[in-house]
Simulated assay, not measured.
Amino acid sequence: MKILAGDIGGTNTRLAVFDTGEKVMKQLAAQTYSSRHYTSLQDILQLFLDSYGTDFQAAGFGLAGPVCDGVGRVTNLPWKIKRGQLARKFAISQVWLLNDLEANAWGLSVLGSQDLHILNPGRKNAQGNRSIISAGTGLGEAGLFWDGKSHRPFASEGGHSDFSPASEIEIALLQYLRQRYGHVSWELVVSGMGLINIHDFLCAYRREKIPRWLLEAMLGGDTAAAISRAAQEEKCPICTEALALFVRLYGREAGNHALKIMATGGVYIGGGIAPKILEQLQNQAFLEAFFTKGSMEALMQDMPVTVILNENTALYGAALYAAAQAGRQ
């Protein structure tokens, strides 16, 4: 079955057409668009269909935000997406919407060893629920319920739950962000925006000014990427401290989410940031923060922890979900 799939995020919208055979995902066409350059998903879809045609039987779109009753809102964009509206406008007989992390969870089934990097092997032949957490433009979280035979993905908006500090400097970070935002979620510290927030806080906390060369790099492109690059190149002590704190917080929230859904079957770290800071995630701080859960530490150490390297995982998942739903009709 040929499926139009979409991974709709606050930064990029990725569209592709797949031929979904048994355990085979053949990509027939693909294009990436800058989400903020368009006023709606419909505008992007029109461009894609004008270029690649409509030779597909169904469509599935993973959205970076909650989806309820066939309607989705992209959290970091002013987009409201309606399943029925898309079907009517583009004459697509079957359209499906799901949360983008739920789409990532669906996509795990077609990944190979080359698409994954193991941080913690965990218990041999680990079984049970799985969790997935992805820092990118925002912070996504989802789970896969183990029914004894297979994993069933489900969505979550856990990234918007309350940030909980665990040290004096993190308490100061919470107070700083509370003045700026009011409600402080985990997304405000573990995301591209989160890294910027941590860097801004540390500049104020340490009473340090941003070097001119870094300010120019931040203003000239991706601010979070500029901070991360300066940290990895050890060119800016504040950036280095910011990235280290980001990694520690990422590990802590990954552990929080895994513990809440008893992810004894494994934890997956997705999103666009993780592959770019893989060296930092392999350092002790990430797993130490993941493991440190008091009396549950042994349980956490048994959980396999794996980084997803394939940026198309959500696209695969959206296509698989749409194909599965179409097959039930």
Results as ranks from 00 to 15, higher is better:
residue 245 L to H: 12
residue 21 G to T: 05
residue 168 E to G: 10
residue 83 R to I: 06
residue 276 K to N: 14
residue 318 A to N: 11
residue 292 T to G: 12
residue 268 Y to F: 11
residue 147 D to T: 03
residue 176 Y to H: 09
residue 203 C to W: 02
residue 19 D to S: 08
residue 148 G to Q: 11
residue 200 D to T: 03
residue 221 G to L: 04
residue 256 N to K: 05
residue 176 Y to C: 06
residue 71 V to H: 14
residue 193 M to C: 05
residue 87 A to M: 04
residue 118 I to Y: 03
residue 25 M to K: 03
residue 125 N to I: 14
residue 26 K to L: 07
residue 270 G to V: 04
residue 4 L to H: 04
residue 269 I to V: 15
residue 109 S to A: 12
residue 104 N to L: 08
residue 118 I to H: 04
residue 230 A to T: 02
residue 305 V to R: 15
residue 162 D to A: 05
residue 34 S to T: 15
residue 69 D to V: 14
residue 319 A to E: 10
residue 256 N to A: 10
residue 163 F to Y: 06
residue 33 Y to P: 15
residue 76 N to L: 07
residue 319 A to W: 08
residue 5 A to Y: 09
residue 246 F to D: 00
residue 313 T to P: 06
residue 292 T to V: 14
residue 163 F to V: 00
residue 131 S to F: 15
residue 312 N to P: 07
residue 12 N to Q: 15
residue 154 F to M: 07
residue 279 E to F: 11
residue 107 G to Q: 08
residue 120 N to M: 04
residue 27 Q to H: 06
residue 271 G to H: 00
residue 270 G to M: 03
residue 152 R to E: 09
residue 170 E to D: 02
residue 269 I to D: 13
residue 84 G to V: 04
residue 188 L to G: 02
residue 231 A to H: 01
residue 246 F to R: 00
residue 90 F to V: 04
residue 14 R to P: 15
residue 293 K to M: 13
residue 316 Y to W: 11
residue 203 C to K: 03
residue 203 C to N: 05
residue 212 R to H: 13
residue 271 G to C: 01
residue 316 Y to C: 05
residue 317 G to R: 06
residue 314 A to V: 07
residue 284 Q to N: 10
residue 181 Y to L: 01
residue 2 K to G: 14
residue 77 L to E: 02
residue 269 I to L: 14
residue 225 A to N: 13
residue 212 R to N: 12
residue 161 S to N: 06
residue 76 N to E: 05
residue 74 V to Y: 08
residue 84 G to N: 09
residue 132 I to K: 02
residue 133 I to Y: 14
residue 304 P to R: 08
residue 227 I to N: 00
